[in-house]
């Protein structure tokens, strides 16, 4: 359980980090290290050099950008969890923290680290995929923005190019007067990897008509998926149980689902559908309870 030898550098700016990344194909970025260090210890990862970005001040912090909440990639999960702006404007993200590791790992683990690691069952990637957040990547040549829908390519594989550094995440802020969110997960033990997890965010106007809807499921396959067709079918309805069941069942039938030792594909399909339905029902309830 000891990593192979590597070099360690702690650059003092984003530019320096990008130059170091561009110069060395065997280098890897380390931030909180709560997923990477176990992989190094088990020698599943063998980078020649670690580039530590955790102390770069420009990568840390949460800010309100009007239509989006912008989170620096190296912002600690624990700092985000208790941030008033996240609670107020990114309630779906605020909801998932209790399921992410333990208090001790959330104090070191970062938001960007979880997204760049891209574990198919991880909670933060699911939120990012469900809300179709924008992910900002810096390279020596400039900055690019990638939508979450095009960001996750496979288990632990993302669209970050060689030499690229994830710098920030932009979560869209919904303008509906009444908003509800919900998250459900099934795992072997609390805080362990999810077999399946589902997230939903819904918005209502002054009546009981749903005017915005997003629902996503993690742990089913290569990466978290957003059920676009289900969301589209539900907008304009009252989000009654029958409409939710029809929309989710139709969306689940289209998905390619994996099985493994922990949970078969059939189990994941069934539980995924149940959790997505529950998430939508609870999100609707929460939205309708919002003071108008």
């Amino acid at each position: 359980m000891k990593p192979v030898p590597f070099d360690y550098v702690r650059p003092t700016s984003i530019e320096e980090t990008c130059a170091l990344l561009a110069a060395d194909g065997d280098a890897r970025v380390i931030a909180g290290g709560q997923s990477l260090v176990p992989m190094l210890a088990m020698r599943l990862a063998r980078p020649a050099r670690l580039i530590d970005i955790l102390r770069l001040p420009e990568l840390s912090g949460v800010r309100d950008d009007g239509n989006t909440v912008v989170i620096g990639a190296a912002t600690r999960q624990a700092a985000t969890e208790h941030h008033p702006l996240i609670k107020a404007k990114a309630p779906l993200l605020a909801k998932v923290f209790p399921w992410i590791g333990h208090p001790a790992t959330r104090r070191r683990g970062t938001i960007g680290g979880s997204i760049a690691h891209a574990d198919p069952s991880a909670e933060i990637p699911l939120v990012v995929a469900t809300l179709d957040a924008e992910i900002v990547v810096r390279e020596a040549s400039g900055e690019t923005t990638i939508n979450a829908g095009e960001f996750f390519l496979g288990p632990m594989v993302t669209a970050i190019p060689q030499g690229g550094l994830l710098t920030e995440i932009r979560l869209p802020v919904w303008s509906q007067p009444r908003l509800g969110v919900s998250f459900h997960e099934v795992n072997a033990r609390h805080s362990d990897f999810a077999f399946v997890c589902a997230a939903a965010q819904v918005g209502f106007d002054e009546t009981t008509h749903c005017t915005a809807c997003a629902v996503g499921i993690g742990g089913l396959g290569e990466f978290p998926v957003r059920l676009d067709r289900a969301a589209k079918a539900l907008i304009g309805t009252d989000l009654d149980h029958a409409a939710i069941a029809d929309a989710v069942d139709a969306a689940m039938a289209e998905l390619d689902i994996w099985g493994d030792l922990h949970a078969s594909a059939e189990y994941r399909r069934r539980v995924g559908g149940v959790l997505a339905r529950r998430a939508l029902i609870d999100a609707r309830q929460a939205a309708l309870e919002c003071p108008q």
Binding site: M1, Y8, R10, G33, Q34, V37, P38, A41, M42, L50, D52, A78, H102, P103, A104, T105, R107, R108
Partner: peptide, 24 residues
């Protein structure tokens, strides 16, 4: 590998896993 918590220390006052941080 960060699962058991036996190596918990306080880093700037906060409990963290000493096995998931390199000394550097």
């Amino acid at each position: 590998h960060g699962v058991c918590g036996a190596c918990t220390i306080l880093l700037d006052g906060e409990p963290v896993r000493a096995c998931l941080i390199f000394a550097v």
